[in-house]
Simulated scan of single mutants.
Amino acid sequence: MNNHEIDYKLYGDDMQFVEVELDPQETVIAEAGSLMMMDDAIRMETIFGDGAESSGGLMGKLLGAGKRVLTGESMFMTAFTNEGTGKKHVSFASPYPGKIIPLDLSTIDGKLICQKDAFLAAAKGVSIGIEFQRKVGTGFFGGEGFIMQKLEGDGMAFVHAGGTIHKKELAAGEVLRLDTGCLVAMTGGIDYNIEMVGGIKTAMFGGEGLFLATLRGPGTVWVQSLPFSRLASRVFSAMPRNGGSKGEGSAASGLFDILGGDRR
């Protein structure tokens, strides 16, 4: 094992947090701002780069930090080390309603590809890098762009996603089509591509967008029922306009919305 071996426990249902149990001198790394609580014997330290054990000196750390910037994350991560004499605990919370997915990377060939903001925490030694989409169409229209997160190692990692999470095993050659924003993570053997929705009428008026993600096995895929982008767009559309208030359950409110009326 190159990674620290950590134990954990999940709490909650739709607003989950994960409690990580650390033996003396064990370390867990996490995204900045994800800490919920920790015992007093745990030392918190900001680290530069992706948190891997073998960083390759200053240049390796710079490359690791650069990879994180490309995925839209901070150059820094936070390491939590148990400096006490017994077992200690540190907890991390997901940033929006959904589920936390615990993954033992040693059981999936040491590699996981996930959406850019999915990573929450991992055992010290797990490398958080980037995965370039080599296909131009996938990069432009795949929802996640050319760059996704790549987790590598043989330890525990925790990713989070919105709504309910569905894990699906794909056999060799089996194809799964899904909304581009609903993809959470996939194992390294999955072939990821995008395709246009069939038919002009369906594409223009179907409300599902112009493209679908196409995943071809063999491998494992994790799918989320409520992408954060979809949740954010619904919240934004429900916000009051021009300083007014948007009533709920009112036929008159709906009529004014349709006609663009001013209820002041």
Rank of each mutant, 00 (worst) to 15 (best):
K61W: 06
H160L: 02
S94V: 15
E31M: 05
L10A: 10
R234Y: 00
G260I: 14
S54M: 09
L226S: 07
R241G: 01
G56L: 02
A213F: 00
L176D: 03
V136S: 11
W222R: 06
F158M: 05
V175W: 02
M38E: 03
A121E: 08
F228E: 06
E131W: 11
H160T: 12
N82W: 14
D179M: 01
G12Y: 14
D191H: 11
G145K: 05
G261S: 12
R234E: 13
M36E: 10
F92I: 09
T107R: 14
D262G: 02
A122N: 09
D40F: 05
G139R: 10
H160S: 11
F146S: 02
A65S: 10
L22V: 05
G207S: 08
E131V: 03
Q16A: 08
V28R: 02
R264P: 01
S250D: 13
S34F: 04
G142R: 12
L231R: 04
D257Y: 03
L215F: 06
S229C: 09
P95Q: 03
S74M: 04
G254W: 06
S225K: 05
A232M: 15
F146A: 03
R241E: 14
G207H: 05
E83M: 09
V18R: 05
E5A: 08
T46A: 13
G163C: 01
I108K: 03
F228C: 00
I194L: 06
T220M: 12
D13R: 14
E195N: 12
G49M: 03
L215Q: 01
E152S: 15
G153M: 04
L170F: 08
L231G: 00
D109Q: 14
P24H: 08
L151M: 14
H4W: 01
A122P: 05
R68T: 03
Y11C: 06
T107M: 10
A251M: 09
N193G: 11
T202Y: 00
G12T: 11
